[in-house]
């Protein structure tokens, strides 16, 4: 037993060095040479400032911006230092309340319809989802056009530019990057 414990300790030290030290350092070194942008969080530069990460959503509530998924992070939505989902079960009253609050906010801002795409009424798993479905973007397009005094076609063109199709044509779901789209809207108005 003593002999086994001694070997166990030596093997653990050796493997800790290899898998806990060498391995992550090698991955980091190669990653920073081959994929520097991705390895650091896919940040979006706007002038001297960092405007955000392409992969991390931001909260939006003004009528002139596209809104993303609901976010259940605390103490404020889209807190990227403490990711979290809502964990509401299908019958939890909070689920219905959150959806109703979103519905009335959408109506107050000027977006309404017979039905609303479900991703606008539900919280994402991470609370940081950077995307909405193309249907959710289209649903909000008339409001954006009205509040920015743009034509709906110009808004749709910007949506199209921020839309990512299924990867390799097959994988995942088509989606619209909300932060990129809103940055593009601001850019469009400045020009």
């Amino acid at each position: 037993m003593i002999q086994q414990l001694r070997t166990a300790t030596l093997v653990l030290i050796a493997l800790t060095f290899l898998t806990g030290g060498v391995y992550p350092l090698v991955v980091t070194a190669i990653a920073h040479v081959a994929f520097p942008t991705q390895a650091n969080g896919s940040l979006i530069q706007r002038g001297a400032q960092i405007a955000g990460s392409e992969l991390i959503g931001q909260p939006f509530s003004r009528p002139e911006y596209f809104w993303g998924r609901l976010s259940a992070t605390a103490p404020f939505p889209y807190n990227a230092a403490a990711s979290s989902g809502s964990n509401f079960g299908p019958l939890h009253p909070g689920l219905k309340q959150a959806a109703e609050a979103r519905l009335s906010a959408l109506q107050a801002a000027g977006s309404s319809g017979k039905t609303v795409p479900v991703d606008l009424l539900t919280a994402s798993a991470s609370g940081l989802d950077p995307h909405i479905s193309p249907a959710a973007a289209e649903f909000q397009a008339p409001r954006i056009a009205a509040s920015r005094k743009m034509s709906e076609n110009a808004v749709r063109e910007l949506i199209r530019q921020s839309t990512e199709g299924r990867q390799l044509g097959i994988l995942g779901e088509p989606r619209v990057n909300v932060l990129r789209l809103n940055l593009a809207l601001d850019q469009h108005q400045m020009n």
Binding site: P90, A99, P117, D119, S124, D129, H131, P134, E173, R175
Partner: peptide, 20 residues
């Protein structure tokens, strides 16, 4: 809520799921 799957949205029970 419109929960029907189409080419423009995944639909379904999206609470706690990511769009992509």
């Amino acid at each position: 809520a419109d929960q029907l799957a189409t080419d423009l949205q995944p639909g379904g029970n999206m609470e706690g799921k990511e769009t992509r």
